[in-house]
Design a protein around this nucleic acid. Structure first.
Lengths: 150, 150
DNA sequence: GACAAAAGTGCATAAGTATGCAAGAGGATT
DNA sequence: AATCCTCTTGCATACTTATGCACTTTTGTC
């Protein structure tokens, strides 16, 4: 299973700076894991790792390995239809929609009952999503953003 | 000077997801700034922007060079006409207005595009203004308060 | 066990990003 | 003015990352 490898990757990334996927590949090889850069690219995407100055870094709140989770079909639909922009601020996520789209999106979010979401407030074209803390808001923001039109 | 461009880049990145430097280049061109991908690569490094799933994102703690504060005459008008009270809480500002005044005030704020403001939500007599953080909310609160009738 | 569907991987290569080099702009010094 | 710096940028290209395709392994079903 590749879960083992993902765990090692997390460990490597958190213990020393890694500048490229090829460097990561060499470090993994030293630990007995031998894969190609292509696979690491996929792993990194799956782990939702981000790259900035100073190399790769794990997501702020380390979420579990790969939780490609449950279908929130309704939310996806609403986001696709109305969603424009997602911005996180502290423990909140501000979700901009086309005019009149906020209410249905908020309703869909309420129905979905994501565990991170404490509640939502909808205006005409903006939904304020209140989460338990900043980490949870980041998760929600990422997830919502991934539902926007590419 | 390139400081102007850096500010616009920050604004673009915070307002909509950007997946690549070339996409950023096109968005900047629409705003009248025309540079090559190479320059953007350097700018992004300078801004310490990081790239993750969901595109580029500004550094968590933003050390921002101050930007100009344009006058937003329209906001002043609206505040004079409808504004009653301004209260800051965390990264938010709650703005009370006369009944029916919230929507126009919020619309004016949206139009003004203050950099500190992430988004606004208007009810009937209350506007919730969401800012990037508490400091920015304080700035916005002070500025709005100064627009109230003495 | 046999088959079908899904997941994981490498290869080759497309897509995206960083950088050495040189050119031009503006400033300071002589 | 001439010269020398420094800063900024574009160009070309090296470097890095993502992905379509084919193949193999795993998982689920009968």
């Amino acid at each position: 299973m590749n879960v083992e490898r993902l765990n090692v990757i997390r460990e490597v990334l958190s213990s020393s700076p890694v500048a490229s996927q090829d460097e990561l590949r060499r470090k993994l090889r030293r630990r007995g894991i031998q894969v190609t850069q292509a696979t690491l690219s996929r792993d990194i995407h799956q782990l939702r790792v981000s790259k900035g100055p100073g190399g790769y870094s794990l997501p702020n709140g380390h979420a579990a390995p790969a939780e490609e989770d449950d279908q929130a079909p309704s939310v996806v639909e609403m986001m696709n239809s109305f969603g424009l922009r997602v911005v996180q601020a502290m423990n909140q996520v501000v979700l901009s929609t086309v005019m009149g789209g906020a209410q249905p999106v908020a309703a869909a979010l309420d129905r979905a009952e994501w565990p991170q979401i404490v509640g939502t407030i909808a205006g005409d074209d903006t939904v304020l999503v209140i989460c338990g803390d900043a980490r949870q808001a980041a998760e929600v923001g990422t997830r919502l953003r991934s539902m926007l039109e590419p």
